[in-house]
Design a protein around this nucleic acid. Structure first.
Length: 287
DNA sequence: ATCTGGCCCTGAGTGC
DNA sequence: TGCACTCAGGGCCAGA
């Protein structure tokens, strides 16, 4: 589900509810999500103070004053919501998705400050863990992740080096979290459209000039999405229940059959399955 | 080493 | 209305 802008939006909504707060109570409705919860999960969080809420790739990280860090990945359909006194809200700037079905609310946490935080995940592709903070960087979740696309490492030169010799598609390469961490199907399709690169092209064959454009396009599409709270399709909502608006700005994603939005291009958006996922692109101007 | 396909899970949408 | 089938924002794993 959520890609970088959506996870970051959830982080921004959740941070005011969690940062500096002590967790008073933690309840699990089941023993596993995608994976089993780690041993004594609730006990290790209960009584701990959340020092901060950060994000790496599509992971949320809450370092605790116990020396451990609570890690959460939203998978495809995971969402957090916050309720209670002092509820977070930004008046007037959002509307609500259908409330999450309580049958898929798997984790509830209460802060000392009186907020109830729920984690709901229909498909249970999400997962949570508790890892010693000092061991995070070496942990299998994180050790092979590539750079953050919004950081300074993402340049045309970086992509050229990362793509060199790769025969697989540029689409697959951008979805590979070891090359760039945080992109998913939507933003890869959108960035390739903006940079006029076919998702079918071999990663190693894309010329340097186009890779510089691609680096700019990735940054641009993520920043524009972030500015409007991400994209809301189906299950996603921010921690305050707000829907993002970037889905209204898609050029190609989920628009098969629509005319290419590029001025004066007469192409039609196509859908092709690549490594099990749909790619959307304009065969006329993405070459 | 790289790469593809299957799979985890539930629900929504489509076509008959 | 019901049934069968396809598809969905992710990522791990096995096998080629």
């Amino acid at each position: 589900m959520p890609e970088l802008p959506e996870v970051e939006t959830v982080r921004l909504g959740l941070a005011p509810a969690l940062e500096g707060q002590r967790l008073a109570r933690v309840e699990l409705a089941r023993a596993d999500l995608r994976f089993p919860f780690p041993p004594h999960f609730a006990e290790r969080l209960t009584g701990a103070r959340v020092l901060s809420l950060t994000r790496r790739a599509k992971y949320l990280l809450a370092p605790l004053d116990t020396g451990e860090t609570w890690v959460a990945h939203l998978g495809m359909t995971g969402r957090f919501s916050v309720e209670g006194a002092g509820r977070i809200s930004r008046p007037g700037d959002f509307y609500y998705a259908a409330p999450p079905d309580p049958k898929h609310t798997h984790v509830r946490l209460w802060t000392e400050g009186g907020l109830a935080i729920s984690y709901n995940d229909v498909r249970r592709f999400g997962y949570m863990d508790v890892i010693p903070t000092a061991e995070l960087a070496a942990h299998p979740y994180f050790k092979d992740l590539g750079p953050e696309p919004l950081g300074t490492e993402l340049t045309g030169a970086y992509l050229a080096k990362a793509f060199a010799g790769r025969v697989s598609s540029v689409k697959a390469a951008l979805l590979d979290q070891r090359i760039l961490a945080g992109l998913g199907n939507i933003y890869v399709c959108e960035a390739l459209f903006r940079a006029r690169i076919s998702p079918l092209a071999a990663a190693g064959s894309v010329p340097a000039g186009k890779l510089a454009a691609l680096a700019r396009a990735i940054r641009e599409v993520l920043e524009q999405s972030l500015a409007v709270g991400g994209s809301s399709l189906r299950d996603y909502a921010g921690a305050d229940g707000a829907q993002g608006a970037f889905q209204n700005a898609f050029s190609v994603y989920d628009r098969a059959g629509a005319p290419c939005p590029r001025p004066r291009c007469v192409g039609v958006v196509a859908r092709r399955v690549q490594s099990g996922r749909s790619s959307f692109f304009c065969p006329k101007c993405q070459g």
